[in-house]
Design a protein around this nucleic acid. Structure first.
Lengths: 189, 189
DNA sequence: TATTTGACTGAATCACTCATTTGGTCATTT
DNA sequence: AAATGACCAAATGAGTGATTCAGTCAAATA
C-alpha cells in the first residue's frame, strides 16, 4: 500500500477533527497504521505535512468555485457565485472551519499562516476572473488586485461579521442586490 | 474640588496607559486622591466608569471627524476625510489604541463591548452623512446603513489589514483614487 | 542495502496549588 | 450627609512537578 497516501489521509482526518495543535504525530501514525518515524521519511516536519494538506484543500475549494462559474454569465453573477461558494466552503468544510477557529482562539502560527495562504488563494482566484472580464471588455480597466481584495473583504464583512453586531444575518439576495448597486455597478464599462 | 471630575480624569489616564484589565480601582483612587469607596458613590462599578470614559472619547472622535468636514465639498471628499480621521484616531488616540489591543490580545469582554460601540458610532456617523447627501440629491437613494457599513469595513481593510498580508502599506492617495473609482462612483446619481 | 520502526530526549505544555490581588461593601470617621 | 479604607469572597497568577510531544536515531525488518 502507498504509505504516503495513507499518512496524508490519516493526517487530513485528524487535522479536520482536532485542528493543528491538538493533532499529534503519534495519532496520525496510529491511524495510518505506520510507525511515527515513517512520517518523517515523507515529510520534513508537522508543519510541512499540514501545508501539503491545506494546499490540497485549497485546490478542492478552487475547483468548487470553478464549477460554480457559468461560461456565458456576467461578471457579477460569476463573481458572486464563486465568492459565495468559497465563503460557504469556509464555514462548511471541516478543515477550513477548524483552521479559522484555531487561528481565532489560539493564534497557532501554523494555522495563521495557512489561513492567510487560503485567503490569498481566494483573492487571486477572483483577480484572475476580473482580468478575464476586463480582457473581454465587460469590465473597465481597473487595478484587479485591489478590486479582488475589496470584493473578498466586503463579502466576508457582510457574510461573517454582520451578525456579530446585528442579530439577523443578511439574506443572500439582499447582499447580491446591494453589491450590484455598489461595487459591481462601478466596474462596468 | 469636583471629586467626580477628579475620578474621571484619573481613570482616563489609567485606562489610557494600562488598559481596562490592568487598571485597578485602587490605582484610580490613588491618582484621584480619593478613597476607593468614593468612586462607588459616583459609578456603580468599574465597567460603568469605563463606559462613561469611552463614550466621552467617542464624542471627541466624532467632533474631530465633524471638524474635518468641509461644507461645500463632495460626499467622497468628506466621507474620505472623516473616515481617515477616525481611523487615524483609532491608531493615535491612546485609549482607543489600548482598547483595540486589549480586545485582540485578551478578549476582555468590557473592551470588546466598547470597541463595538465605538465602531457602531463611526458607522452611524457615516450613515448620517450619506442621508444628508442623499437628501441634497448628490447621491442616489440607497440603503445608507449598508453603504456606511461597507465604507467602514472597506477602509478598515485597506488601512489596517492590507499590510498584514502585504509588506508595504497603501499610500492614502492610492486608497482615495481606488475608492473613487469603485464605491463612491457607484453612489453618484 | 534500503526502509521502517518505536524507544528516547529535551523542550514545551499542563494540571494543580496556594499566596496575592482586586472589585465591591459597609461600619466607622469626618 | 459624604467620604473612607479595612474587610471579604472571588479571581488571578506565580511556582511546581508531571506529562506530553515533535523530532531523532540506533536497531529491526524486509
Amino acid at each position: 500500500m502507498d504509505r504516503k497516501k495513507e499518512i496524508l489521509e490519516a493526517a487530513t482526518r485528524s487535522f479536520s477533527l482536532f485542528g493543528y495543535k491538538a493533532t499529534t504525530m503519534e495519532q496520525i501514525a496510529k491511524i495510518a497504521n505506520v510507525g511515527k518515524g515513517t512520517i518523517y521519511t515523507f515529510f520534513a516536519n508537522k508543519e510541512v505535512l499540514f501545508q501539503e494538506i491545506v494546499r490540497k484543500m485549497i485546490c478542492e475549494m478552487k475547483q468548487e468555485a470553478t464549477d460554480a462559474i457559468k461560461e456565458g454569465a456576467s461578471f457579477q453573477e460569476n463573481a458572486h457565485d464563486a465568492l459565495m461558494k468559497m465563503l460557504e466552503f469556509r464555514e462548511t468544510h471541516q478543515l477550513y472551519a477548524k483552521i479559522v477557529d484555531e487561528e481565532k482562539d489560539w493564534r497557532t502560527p501554523a494555522a495563521k499562516q495557512m489561513l492567510h495562504e487560503t485567503e490569498q488563494a481566494i483573492v487571486t482566484f477572483i483577480k484572475e476572473k476580473i482580468d478575464k472580464y476586463v480582457a473581454k471588455g465587460e469590465l473597465r480597466q481597473i487595478n484587479s488586485e485591489l478590486v479582488a481584495y475589496l470584493l473578498f473583504k466586503a463579502y466576508l464583512a457582510f457574510i461573517n461579521d454582520w451578525n456579530v453586531t446585528h442579530d439577523e444575518s443578511l439574506p443572500e439576495v439582499e447582499i447580491a442586490n446591494f453589491f450590484q448597486e455598489t461595487i459591481f455597478r462601478s466596474l462596468l464599462v
